[in-house]
Design a protein around this nucleic acid. Structure first.
Length: 647
DNA sequence: CTAGGGTTACGA
DNA sequence: TCGTAACCCTAG
């Protein structure tokens, strides 16, 4: 069997094992969410985020899972208005974006989608009202609230509350945020039932006490019978004995109603082998599933059984097609089926799909809000944005992150927290982006571009500390950073960070580093670059939109979004939203957003070039959780990096 | 989809 | 006002 494994493809052990880990942590994250253990949830999502940056055997449902994580992480932080996953958006607005992606991938009934979206928007408005953010509530109301007749009453009520600046009302007390979270979880679970992860199955089969399958569906009993296979968690099925196979086959055939007996199958197999090598069977026995469309039963057979679910091990593709019949896999994840998503997944396999990310919608409408707020001090705005960047960078070191990413998308998006109102605008960013590799850390200060010189001081303090610390952390899920404009707050900031984590969104992170970083940041925009290493740029750039001459923001933004959404498949919706943005937001008719490259993004790019070679921008883009970056952007960035000799 | 040249936002 | 990273446009 081992041989088979190798055959399967050129998957590395890391890819395979990361996939197991990925599946496991997604499972655990959902369990934690279900149990209202949101701290644990954020821990798991952080792990996932970081895991995704590593090579993973991307399989069919990975994207779906990432999207679910993104969605839930945003929901989880939805009551924290000062957090941001995507630049200008509140967590719940980001959740809506992710929802759209999910719906697209999984073909969710329009009604259901609308219902969930409406629930999110209403909750967001209530959150805003409760916290006295009337202006924001109004914005959300105008921008997103359904025009459907049946919601007209609520709309009026909210308008009334906003007008009267009422932050307390019976309506606002009726629903608890906790219930909302669970409602959203229910939605996700209805859509997609996460199969019991391979690792857990193996553990169970091995007879490990105390293992319980939580959320998932599966019926453990049957599986246990199959325990034979379990013995080696690691080895997977490779060494099954015939006896084991027979047992497993018995269970599965029963479950699936396969009438062919094991013996018959065996005979068939032998015959076929003689005739030719029938790959399928071959594989089957060998244990690695193969992709071919398997014949009716043969395929479904054993191979999978044993192997299990997992096709995980190997080829993802195979799974996609087979699923139904085949195997355990299917059993475990009935849900999958609903989603067409699988198809979409396409090639993500290698790394993670970009999906993770979040998109950048955020980017587009980014600064507008704030900027408007802060109008007074333009500078301040800048600084903020910069801060953001910084954070990201830092992110590498300290990222905290939000799950999403996953997307990714991750990716993912950074979460920020700003003390908005008040004078300070500190923000925390949890970068959802995971960080990938550590390289980031490496090239820290040395490279800095001339520009940064000035800032270096800040950089040092901030950046370096960050850097140093960070390497290790990459794993830490999200780094949260916060920059304040006011220096005083710094200390507080760091604290905030902590809080955030607790809150759930992010959890781990290395605290130490951050603080310093934060401080520095604020003052200097420069900070940004530094921290991570990369420096290339780093200017902090928040995202300012920019687009060519036309201020008509719409166009520009759309593009960006679209792109990243492509991955996930969202786009279109945005157009709507955009229009909304531009239309309603008196704030700033934003123009365009110029988004500086973060260290992390640059690292991804470098890694992508290393893997695929320069010129394969689209491939690189889709292999990493870039958000809001087009292949052209990547190309341009690479050109800049070359120019600056950053690579 | 990519390469390459032009344009623009933004800090200094 | 200048330099430049990010971004746009267009040809191939």
């Amino acid at each position: 069997m081992s041989a088979s494994a190798s055959k399967v493809s050129s998957l590395s052990d890391e890819q395979i094992i990361n996939r197991w880990g990925f599946d496991y942590y997604v499972f655990k994250a959902l369990s934690a969410f279900r149990d209202a253990d949101y701290t644990a949830f954020t821990h798991f999502t952080s792990i996932i985020e970081n895991l995704v940056v590593r090579p993973v055997d991307g399989h069919s449902d990975m994207i779906v899972k990432l999207r679910c994580m993104q969605f839930l992480s945003r929901i989880n932080n939805g009551d924290k208005l000062d957090l941001t996953f995507e630049e200008p958006k509140t967590p719940l607005e980001s959740a809506v974006s992710v929802l759209e992606s999910i719906c697209r991938d999984m073909s969710v009934p329009p009604r259901e989608q609308e219902r969930v979206k409406q629930a999110i928007i209403e909750t967001l408005i209530m959150v805003c009202l409760r916290s006295g953010e009337f202006t924001r509530a109004e914005e959300v109301l105008l921008r997103h609230f359904s025009d459907a007749e049946d919601s007209a009453g609520k709309k009026k009520l909210f308008e009334s509350l906003i007008r009267r600046r009422r932050s307390s009302h019976s309506v606002l007390q009726l629903s608890s945020y906790a219930d909302f979270k669970q409602d959203m979880l229910d939605f996700i679970e209805r859509l997609y039932r996460v199969p019991e992860p391979f690792l857990l199955q193996m553990l169970k089969r091995s007879g490990h006490p105390g293992v319980s399958s939580e959320p998932v569906t599966s019926s453990s009993q049957d599986r246990q019978k199959t325990s034979a296979a379990a013995e080696h968690h690691g080895g997977v099925c490779a060494r099954l004995s015939l006896h084991s196979l027979r047992q497993v086959y018995g269970v599965l055939s029963e479950r699936y109603g396969v009438s062919v007996s094991f013996t018959q199958l065996q005979q068939e197999l032998e015959e076929e082998q003689e005739q030719e090598e029938s790959p399928e069977l071959h594989l089957a026995l060998s244990e690695t599933p193969r992709e071919q469309p398997e014949p009716p039963y043969a395929g479904m057979t054993i191979s999978r059984l044993v192997q299990e679910d997992d096709s995980q091990l190997s080829a993802a593709e195979e799974e996609e097609e087979e699923t139904q019949i085949s195997s355990p896999h299917s059993e475990c994840s009935p849900a999958q089926i609903c989603t067409p998503a699988r198809h979409t997944q396409k090639h993500n396999r290698i790394v993670l799909s970009s999906d993770v990310e979040a998109e950048d919608h955020a980017a587009s409408p980014p600064s507008s809000r704030r900027s408007s707020r802060h109008k007074q001090q333009k500078k301040s705005v800048h600084s903020e944005s910069k801060c953001v960047m910084v954070e990201d960078d830092g992110g590498s070191s300290a990222q905290v992150c939000s799950p999403a990413r996953p997307s990714s998308s991750s990716s993912s998006p950074a979460v920020r927290r700003s003390a908005r109102d008040t004078q300070r605008q500190s923000r925390i960013v949890l970068s959802s982006d995971v960080e990938p590799e550590d390289h980031a850390t490496s090239p820290p200060s040395s490279r800095r571009s001339s520009r940064h010189k000035q800032q270096q001081k800040s950089v040092h303090s901030a950046g370096e500390s960050a850097l140093v610390s960070s390497p290790a952390h990459p794993s830490s899920p999200a780094s949260v950073r916060r920059s304040d404009r006011d220096t005083q707050n710094q200390s507080s900031e760091s604290e905030c960070v902590m809080e955030v984590e607790d809150g759930g969104s992010c959890v781990q992170h290395s605290t130490p580093a951050r603080p310093s970083a934060t401080d520095t940041q604020r003052h200097n925009r420069s900070v940004t670059v530094s921290s991570e290493s990369e420096d290339h740029n780093s200017s902090p750039a928040p995202q300012t939109p920019r687009r060519r001459s036309s201020p008509s923001s719409g166009g520009a933004h759309k593009r960006r979004r679209a792109r990243w959404q492509d991955v996930s498949g969202t786009h279109e919706n945005w157009s709507d939203e955009e229009s909304l943005f531009s239309a309603t937001s008196g704030r700033s008719s934003k123009k365009y957003s110029r988004k500086m490259w973060t260290v992390q993004e640059s690292e991804w790019l470098k890694e992508g070039v290393r893997r695929f070679g320069a010129g394969h921008w689209e491939k690189i883009r889709s292999s990493f959780p870039f958000t809001g970056r087009t292949a052209v952007n990547l190309k341009d960035r690479w050109r800049t990096m070359l120019k600056l000799r950053l690579v």
